[in-house]
Amino acid sequence: MPIAFPQAEAATPPKKKRQWAMVIDLRRCDGCKKCTEACQTTHDLPQTFEWIKVFEVQDKQGGSYFMPRPCMHCENAPCLRVCPVAATFKTDEGVILVDQSRCIGCRMCMAACPYGARYFNFADPPKPPSPFAQPTPEHPVPQIKGTVGKCMLCVHNTVDGKLPACVSACGMQALWIGDLVEDVATNGTDTVRLSSLLKDNDAFRYKEELGTSPRVYYIAGHGQALQGA
């Protein structure tokens, strides 16, 4: 389903078609949860809504590392397939969005998501700063009670040429946003070739075996210096 960004088109007529991807460098993540806080501030979410959630993973050898988990924006998204009303849809830039004005709140997508990335609005969201705020799939603020919301890769930011809130909030530069078409990724400070970043660091996708083809890549490790970038 195509979505139009009327204002954006007016501002920058020959807009490039992106295919957004994200790279999370676990070597750099120190678990400060600044990304989560920035996300909640940007989208007026309550504390319990961690659209990007930082897990502290204990491995079997006794080590531990931090793992931020946004929506994976799977190319073969299970949530998209199970939605009965097509309230969940994929933009032509590969971002999975939720049309909360259509969602019936059946929570089938929450059962289907292998990453637990979806959050149901059991109650009304905290009061938005502007009483005139009109939530849209591209800017779902405030959230609508009785519907499902999730990380939407800050398309309201990227369409304006700004970084997603979590990427710009990350003091460790562990979060990268990239474009698969132009093959470039940036963490706000450094900009590298996306394919090189993935290849040189043996990036992996979480639960690759499920065939969901996530658009979020991870670079394993904890604390090592970043090479190749």
Partner: peptide
């Protein structure tokens, strides 16, 4: 019960209006 379970029972008719045939709910 499927209707009781909905977050937005008022939008139940959306299942018919926008029925997406790949969904187990449909």
């Amino acid at each position: 019960y499927p209707i009781v379970d909905l977050g937005r029972p008022d939008r139940f008719v959306n299942i018919i209006r926008y029925a997406q045939i790949g969904s187990p709910i449909v």
